[in-house]
């Protein structure tokens, strides 16, 4: 038990520290790398909570795909991050004040928090026994049956996102060289190759 607590505080501390570094490091590439570190520690926390599927998904999807994409964007686009960061000190007091208010409010709310006995009994019921099924199996059991509706709407939302990305960014430029399979197949050797007699010592005028 103490080992679990030890790892919890280790992961949590590294996560908070790297999250701070994400917004404070000067180099945007470092920011993205720190974000990866934060996600990896988040995955560790999920693992401690017994949610191994979520932990691995976090690593595979966020670290493996999303953040690598981020890294590409940061490296390839010429965004002036120094200019974007200007004015931080100017806004810091206001931001800190709002953060403080939110913190106080949250403490007030959570201070009044008590678990009612009915909820405790309700909460236990729908969760399958972790010893009986693995995470993946438990998710798979409900995702395509009980939550098929939500799953399908998520599919539609992703379709809309894809249409949007294409509508807003795809441009048919005349300069782009596109492959025309028909033209490639129609092409005969006599169109492309010409046999010329080369006189010795004269070279060839193209």
């Amino acid at each position: 038990m103490t080992l679990v607590a030890l790892f919890f505080y280790l992961f949590a501390a590294i996560m908070v520290a790297s999250a701070l570094m994400v917004i404070s490091s000067r180099n945007p590439v470092h920011s993205v790398l720190f974000l990866i570190l934060a996600f990896l520690n988040g995955a560790g926390l999920f693992m401690l909570a017994g949610a191994e599927f979520l932990a691995l998904i976090l690593v595979v999807v966020y670290v493996g795909a999303v953040l690598v994409l981020f890294l590409f964007v940061v490296m390839m686009l010429d965004v002036d991050f120094v200019a974007m960061r200007q004015g931080v000190m100017q806004y810091l007091p206001v931001g800190a004040a709002i953060g403080l208010v939110l913190l106080v409010e949250l403490i007030l709310v959570l201070g009044a928090y008590t678990l009612s006995p009915e909820i405790a009994s309700q909460g236990v019921l729908p969760i399958p026994d972790p010893a009986a099924v693995t995470n993946t199996e438990a998710l798979g059991n409900v995702l395509y049956t009980k939550y098929a509706f939500y799953f399908q709407i998520c599919g539609l939302i992703l379709l809309v996102a894809m249409i949007g990305a294409i509508v807003l960014t795809l441009r048919h430029t005349t300069r782009a060289k596109r492959q025309d399979v028909g033209a490639q197949v129609r092409r005969r050797p006599e169109d492309a190759v010409e046999v010329r007699e080369v006189a010795s010592g004269r070279g060839l005028q193209l």
Partner: peptide, 23 residues
């Protein structure tokens, strides 16, 4: 509540795009 959020998001996401369709 989950259906509320998903429906709202599907509706809004499509509208964000049509608002800027004249890109």
């Amino acid at each position: 509540m989950i259906a509320v959020y998903l429906g709202l998001e599907l509706q809004s996401l499509a509208i964000y795009i049509v608002v800027s369709i004249n890109r």
